[in-house]
Nucleic acid binder design. Structure first.
Lengths: 137, 137
DNA sequence: CTGCACCCCGTAGCGGCTACGGGTGCAAGA
DNA sequence: TCTTGCACCCGTAGCCGCTACGGGGTGCAG
C-alpha cells in the first residue's frame, strides 16, 4: 500500500497540523500512541490522518479540546446520537455568539473613538479620554 | 485627607480589579511599586487608583498589556501626541475587526450546521459530517 | 486578648500550543 | 563508503493574562 512509512512529519503535513502539536495531542491523549519502529520512530496508519484532520477542523471551528474529546467519542460508534452531538455544537455556538456580541460592542466603541481623533499633536485625545474617564457602558 | 490607609485590597476594589491582579501588575512592572508600611504592607496613593482604573478600562477594550504600556507612556506627559495614541488604537481596532470577521464566519458555519440537525438519534449527523469531510472554506 | 479579615510571599496552574536544546536515525549524493 | 543534512527522539520551559494555593504575619474590633 504505502511506499513510505507514515512518520509524524508526514502525518502532520497530511492533516495540516504542526508536528509539535501532534506530539502534544499524544501527550494529552487526544491522539492514541502509534506503533513504533525498531529505532523508536512513530509509525502511523491511515486512521490517524482522519482522526487528526477531524481534530484540526474542530479546532478551526473553535471547539475546545475537551469538546473535541466528546465529539470524537460520539463519532466513534457508527450509531452515534446526533442529538448529543447537536448539544455540544449548540453550546459552542452559544459561546461563539456571546463572544461575537462582546467583540462587536468593542469594535463600535473603538471605531467611534478613533474616528474622533484629529490626528493633530493635540493635548486632548479621544482615546486617552475614554481610558481616563469613568466608564459609561 | 484619607482616614484609612489605601491598602492593596482597597485599591483593588476602588479600581474594580482583582487583588491578585494588582500584585501581578506590580510584578510585570505595569504598576509602580508603592510605599510600604513598617510591617511591609503596601501603601498606595490616589494616583495609583487612576492608573489602575486606566489599565482596567484598556483591558476591557481588549488592549494587550504591551499596548497598555505604550498608552500609559503616551498619556504621561501632558503634551501627548494624539497621533501616536491613535496609531495604537487603530492597530487594535484592526485586530478586533479581523477577529470579528473570523468569528462571524464561524458563527455562520456552526449555525447552518446545527440548524440541519434533526435531533433524531440518526446515524448521519450534519455536525459530524462537516468535521469528517474535507473542508471547504 | 482573641478571633478573624486582611495582608505578605513564592509558586503552580489554566488552555493550546510553540520553541529550545541535545541527542539519534536514515537516505541520498560525492 | 562516507558524510552531509534533514527528520526524528525526548523533556522542559515559555507564551498571555491572570487565578489559585499554601503557609505564614498584621491590624483592628469586640
Amino acid at each position: 500500500m504505502s511506499r513510505r512509512p507514515l512518520t509524524i512529519g508526514r502525518l502532520a503535513s497530511a492533516a495540516g497540523v504542526n508536528l509539535e502539536t501532534v506530539r502534544y495531542y499524544e501527550r494529552i491523549k487526544l491522539m492514541p500512541p502509534p506503533a513504533r519502529t525498531a529505532s523508536g520512530h512513530r509509525a502511523y496508519e491511515e486512521g490517524h490522518i482522519r482522526r487528526l484532520a477531524f481534530i484540526r477542523r474542530a479546532r478551526e471551528l473553535g471547539f475546545s479540546i475537551e469538546q473535541i474529546r466528546t465529539l470524537l467519542a460520539l463519532a466513534e460508534p457508527t450509531r452515534a446520537s446526533c442529538a448529543e452531538v447537536q448539544e455540544v455544537a449548540q453550546t459552542h455556538l452559544d459561546e461563539v455568539r456571546a463572544k461575537l456580541a462582546d467583540l462587536a460592542k468593542l469594535e463600535r466603541i473603538l471605531a467611534e473613538t478613533v474616528a474622533r481623533c484629529s490626528g493633530d499633536p493635540a493635548p486632548t485625545c479621544p482615546v486617552l479620554d475614554i481610558l481616563t474617564t469613568q466608564k459609561r457602558a
